[in-house]
Computed example of a mutant assay.
Amino acid sequence: MKDEAMLDAKPDQPTAKCPVHMDEPGTGRLAHADADHPAVPQAKIGVLIANLGTPDNYDYWSMRRYLNEFLSDKRVVDYPAWLWQPLLQLVILTKRPFTSGANYKSIWNTDKDESPLLTITKDQTARLAETVAEKFGDGVMVDFCMRYGNPSTTSKVDEMVKAGCEKILFFPLYPHYAGATSATACDQFFRALMTQKWQPAARTVAPYFEHPSYIKALAASVRRAYDAMEEKPEVLVASYHGMPKRYLMEGDPYHCQCQKTTRLLREELGWEEAKIQTTFQSVFGPEGWLRPYTVDHVADLAKQGVKRLAVIAPAFSADCIETLEEINEEICESFEEAGGEHFTYIPCLNDDALHIAALTEVIEENLAGWS
């Protein structure tokens, strides 16, 4: 009789207990809750994609805040704090914001007053929201965050929980796993969950460096670029972000995953082995990093007689400072100064339709049992 009475009760009548989910979607009212019960939104699933981050501007203080957060991350620089922090605060952060700021200024999206990475990530999120909605309706919410800078991971997790996301799929947009990218992004996501009173169920997306749809999207971008050229490049360099070689020796799988992506891309293109070569860029600090270094290798190729060269950056899901400035300017200059004549940078997949389709496929696979 008690249960029958509860079923007949009006939404504003006090009752002894209330269900977890709303019986009246979108009202913010639990069907059998007490009158003073806090509003509860309709239950949803959240898909939170994450990228590295971006400064808010390229001025000194914006750059200093961003670089301080980034370079203070123990996943990025794992030296003891007593050794690293004085060097960082007193030396590096007094000079580097000027040079990094100048680099960002050279690629800044002046129309929207934001970095290209932020612009592209917004576009990717909008496209993903459309494709996910086509598959799952409005019960899945898609948004993005940055590991460093804004919008922060904590703020976006908070927004998702307040919007009713009882389950969150966290998707670091790094095809390859590395402690300094995927792991630190997940660390920050887990920290954000710790701040929630009602903590949602959570999943993280594994690296997708060998996913067939991702490889096909990469190959299509290469074919598209080559088809637009009268004279094809003699060599395609697959340039990946570098890391200290010590990390590989300590068990980080990044190097091996990068090598496999290059091999799978070559096989998808049907090319011989010498046509694609793997290199690593963005060397920082005094210790040895993964080799060969892109900036040196392209010069060596030019000295060996290679006149036409193309570079692709498979480890980046969106064009950013490392591709638009480092590859398109510094690495290009290294090749041309050594005798190279035609340098082509093949853009990241960004919001290309095949890339969005591949990411949607990864999301769908990881939502199995939830959606």
Rank of each mutant, 00 (worst) to 15 (best):
D73E: 11
D36I: 01
I49A: 00
A126N: 13
M194V: 00
G340I: 03
T261R: 02
M141P: 00
Q196N: 12
D319V: 03
K112M: 14
V306G: 03
E326Y: 02
Y177P: 01
G270I: 05
A35I: 07
C18D: 08
K167V: 00
A274N: 08
T27E: 14
F70D: 05
L236C: 12
L117Q: 06
F335V: 05
A220M: 10
K167A: 06
T119G: 10
C320E: 05
A353Y: 07
P286N: 08
Q281S: 08
E333P: 05
L128A: 02
R246L: 12
L367Q: 03
T360I: 05
D78P: 02
E134F: 05
C165A: 09
E333Q: 14
G26V: 11
M146T: 01
I346S: 02
R291Q: 15
V157R: 05
T119C: 11
L248I: 06
K112S: 12
A178Y: 03
D187K: 14
E267R: 03
N68M: 12
G101S: 08
V298G: 00
T27M: 13
A133H: 07
A219N: 04
D78W: 01
F70V: 03
K162V: 05
E230N: 07
V311Y: 00
D158S: 10
G26S: 15
R266E: 10
K10D: 12
T195R: 15
P233T: 10
K2G: 07
T262F: 01
G139E: 07
L117C: 02
A274W: 06
M1V: 10
I327A: 06
A338R: 09
H176T: 06
E272G: 08
N366Y: 10
L52Q: 03
A183C: 00
T153W: 03
G369Q: 11
V157W: 00
Q277L: 09
T279P: 11
L52R: 04
R224Q: 13
A299Y: 09
R64A: 00
F70E: 11
D143E: 12
I107V: 12
L87I: 13
Y66Q: 09
C320A: 10
H37V: 08
T94C: 09
C186P: 02
A202L: 01
Q13N: 12
P233R: 08
S239R: 03
I356V: 14
L118E: 12
E134D: 12
A338Y: 04
P244D: 01
E166D: 13
D123A: 15
E361S: 10
Y240G: 08
V76A: 01
E365P: 04
L48V: 01
Q257I: 01
E364W: 00
